[in-house]
Structure formats: structure tokens, C-alpha cells
């Protein structure tokens, strides 16, 4: 299905992650939640994370998007799971695309969705703990 010449079609890894997405769903007791969307193609993503000792202990995603959006987000969660927050923040769109063996030219932008939502989720985690700290300080 994937054409080396023009880069059209999807690799087997993309198709695998698309058809068997890893870590799909939503964590109801998440420590952080991040969203992102691409207004051009209408794709949207929500990533929720559970954090223990500065590590991503659990991660889930929801997606409204094309095959590439589903596969790249699935791969993002695989790459992020078990990583420290700093390591997770360093995951790039290229990392995701490479881990899937490449993406068609017109689908490269999809690989940005996962890392962006992940960053937003980590940011949200930090926002929450600083709020929590603020809250504790206030009580002091």
C-alpha cells in the first residue's frame, strides 16, 4: 500500500497503529490533560496522563482524525509511556514519523498533533500542581 517512489500510501506500521491503536481512551483521574487540533483538516486530539515521580506512568488518547492522526498519536503515547516528563517533552514530530517508518508527504503534518497534545498535557500537569502548591501556600 505504501509507494516508495512518491511516498503515497501508508507504511505497515502506520496501518498497524491505525487499526490497533495503543493506549486509546481517557483517564478519568488524569493528572494532566492536553488538547490540540488542526483547523485545516479538522483533526483533534486529547491526551491524558498519570504522573508518578516525574514519570508518565499511564497515558491515553482520544482522537478525531485521519489514519495518520490516529497512528501518530498512538505512537506518541507508546514513545511517552514510562518516560520522564523532560524526556517526554523532547519527543518531536520527526521522532513519531520515523518510529512509524515514514508518512506520506501530505500527511507529515499529522505527526505534530501527538507531541503537541502531549506537551499541553504536561503543561497542564504543571499548571495543576502549581495551583495546588499555591493553594497549599494560601492555607499556610
Amino acid at each position: 500500500m505504501y509507494c516508495e517512489t512518491c511516498g503515497s500510501g501508508y507504511t505497515n506500521d502506520v496501518m498497524d497503529h491505525f487499526q490497533n491503536p495503543r493506549n486509546s481512551g481517557h483517564l478519568v483521574d488524569a493528572d494532566g490533560e492536553g488538547k490540540t487540533g488542526d483547523p485545516e483538516c479538522g483533526d483533534h486530539i486529547v491526551i491524558s496522563i498519570k504522573v508518578r515521580n516525574q514519570r508518565i506512568e499511564d497515558i491515553r488518547f482520544l482522537v478525531y482524525g485521519c489514519a495518520a492522526a490516529i497512528a501518530t498519536t498512538s505512537m506518541t503515547t507508546e514513545l511517552a509511556k514510562g518516560k520522564t516528563l523532560t524526556e517526554a517533552l523532547n519527543i518531536t514530530d520527526d521522532d513519531v514519523a520515523n518510529a512509524l517508518g515514514g508518512l506520506p508527504e501530505n500527511k507529515l503534518h499529522c505527526s505534530l498533533l501527538g507531541p503537541t497534545a502531549l506537551k499541553n498535557a504536561i503543561q497542564n500537569y504543571y499548571d495543576r500542581i502549581s495551583d495546588f502548591k499555591k493553594c497549599l501556600m494560601y492555607q499556610d
Partner: peptide, 10 residues
């Protein structure tokens, strides 16, 4: 739909 970012509520 089970893992869609959207649904009736969301």
C-alpha cells in the same frame, strides 16, 4: 467513536 475526541457531550 470509543476513542473519538468528540461525542454528544464532548
Amino acid at each position: 467513536r470509543s476513542f473519538s475526541a468528540f461525542n454528544k457531550e464532548r
